[in-house]
Computed example of a mutant assay.
Amino acid sequence: MKETLAVRFHQTGGTEVLKIEKLNVPSPGKGEVLIQNYAVGLNFIDTYYRTGLYQTELPSGLGFEGAGEVLEVGEDVTEFKVGDRVAYPHSPIGAYSKYRTLASHWLVKLPSSISYEEGAAMMLKGLTVQYLFRQTYDLKQGDTILFHAAAGGVGLIACQWARHLGVNLIGTVSSEEKGKLALEMGATHFINYTTEDVKQRVLELTHNQKVKVVYDSVGKSTWETSLDCLAPRGLMVSFGNASGAVTGVNLGILAQKGSLYVTRPILATHISTREKLVAASNELFDLVSRGIIKIQIGQKFPLEQIQEAHKELESRRTKGSTILIP
């Protein structure tokens, strides 16, 4: 059994509820491995659990993705051995720690061409883009889409993946600086929502045709605008709640705005089997290893600065991915 430092919270609320505590990490049992996290990913979903928007039993750890090295393997583990480089995109809550014991089915082997920091910054975000672009809607060359928060961790991967597919991505951002970064990463156009009318700019950029798909991780504050940007029979993909959850949806509005479709996908559904997890990860690893997608790590925080890290994320001051170093 190892002792580790980990982030815990005993009640939901603001960043002040996050504390660093010492925990005992059990030795791996049947089908489990003990890993040392060298880097951990910070994601907006983490704030949903901290604030109580999503429920978890308290007290609780936090975080879902990370990358590190296998230190011990339990009985019946055949796919991994001590010393293997591994990463995981979605696991039981509690990734904000130096050591943790996990069931081996959550893990994939991390190629040597990808650093631990890149692995922690890309797994949940990169596999989110994989399911959005390759499973939720099968994008084709020449399609035009709207992607909110295009300069965030998910957004910058989406910009690059869209360029690879030959898709025209219109990205919304909160500043000119972020817009230029989105263009550099592959966006066709950007819309600064603090100074421009998103609906009007989409009409201008598409010659009044609007877009086939809107990808929206913002939620409540962009819901109506997103629907207004969709062409008839277009697809609204709501995959996050950064501004709050979308509630009270009136299905009649979908009819009025053009027989629209709406979906609320999550990663877990798309990697529900080990085979699906490995296949999606391999596609992502291939694009990163070939340099088609470059992982943009905008911020790094030591685990002890977790409160500051959450404040920066929620303030929309971050660019690209944010990682924690245990």
Rank of each mutant, 00 (worst) to 15 (best):
L146V: 07
A158E: 12
L132S: 10
K140H: 14
Y131R: 02
F190T: 11
A150N: 02
N168H: 14
L132D: 07
Q141Y: 08
T144H: 00
V173N: 10
Q200K: 14
L183V: 08
L165S: 03
F190I: 04
L124A: 15
G171K: 04
L124E: 12
Q200C: 00
E176M: 02
L127A: 15
A151F: 13
I191P: 03
Q130M: 10
G155H: 06
L169K: 01
Y131N: 11
V129S: 13
T195F: 07
L139I: 14
L127Y: 13
F190W: 07
L127R: 13
G166V: 00
A149Y: 01
D138P: 02
F147D: 00
A149V: 01
E196H: 04
G155S: 07
S175C: 09
Y193R: 05
G126H: 12
A162G: 01
E184W: 09
Q200I: 00
K178R: 03
L156V: 13
Q160P: 05
D138T: 12
H189G: 04
T194P: 12
Q130P: 04
D197H: 05
G171W: 11
R134V: 02
L183A: 08
L156M: 08
I170Y: 09
F133P: 06
M123W: 11
L183C: 08
A182P: 08
R163D: 07
I170V: 15
L127N: 05
T188C: 03
R163P: 07
H148A: 00
G142T: 11
D138R: 11
S175G: 04
Q135V: 05
E184Y: 15
H189T: 00
S174Y: 13
L139G: 08
L132P: 03
T128S: 06
I145C: 01
S174N: 14
L165T: 04
E176H: 13
T188L: 10
T144C: 08
T144S: 02
Y131F: 13
L156S: 15
W161D: 02
L139T: 07
A162D: 00
Q200R: 03
L181E: 05
Y137E: 08
V198K: 08
L127C: 10
G179D: 00
I191C: 02
H189L: 00
V154M: 05
Q130D: 12
M185Q: 15
V129E: 14
S174I: 09
H148K: 03
T136G: 06
L183S: 09
V154I: 13
E177R: 09
L127S: 13
W161T: 03
V154A: 07
T172H: 14
T136H: 02
Y193P: 12
G171A: 10
F190K: 09
K125Q: 15
Q135I: 01
L183P: 08
G142K: 11
T144V: 00
G186E: 11
L181D: 07
D138M: 09
T188H: 08
T172S: 15
Y193T: 06
T188F: 09
D143W: 09
F190Y: 15
K199H: 10
A162L: 01
Q160K: 03
W161Y: 10
R134E: 07
Q130C: 03
M122I: 08
G171D: 14
G179I: 00
A158D: 09
G166R: 06
K125E: 15
T128N: 05
K180Y: 06
Q130K: 11
M122L: 14
N192G: 04
M123F: 14
G142R: 11
S175H: 12
E184K: 13
